[in-house]
Amino acid sequence: MKLPVTITINGRAYQREIEPRLLLVHFLRDMAGLTGTKIGCDTSQCGACTVLLDGVAMKSCTCLAAQADGASITTIEGLSADGQLAPIQEAFWAKHGLQCGFCTPGMVLATRALLETTPQPTPEQIRHALEGNMCRCTGYQNIVRSVQHAANMMGGRP
């Protein structure tokens, strides 16, 4: 059985026939060809697959593509426009908030969601907000600095 779905990703509608069991992360990577979203585990711990679903950060491996029918998704590919990095991306670059880069797309989108609700987070709030996104390279310290820097660059505006 195939299900027709329409999922808007980074402003563009993707109409596809899918298997009901297809995970959203596989829809993004394999059916929409947007491989910026990563898969780091199979138990929804690592957060590498974090995207925004209707503006809310969620792990796209925990969601069936069918459940996202009609939803609007933002992935890492949708953050920068015209080759210009978004402030959060600039901040991660400036503060060495990434090494191998594999957790980075999820980390950046989790940061975006945090700054929507908490435009000037404390280091403790940042660490708490990102505890569902694992990084094995940085020890998180420069990620915290990056998020603080992004908040400052954005002047407290979400």
Binding site: E77, L85, Q89, F92, W93, L98
Partner: peptide, 9 residues
């Protein structure tokens, strides 16, 4: 190396 890593490319 960061711009490509930060943009999902």
């Amino acid at each position: 190396e960061d711009p490509r890593l930060l943009t999902g490319t």
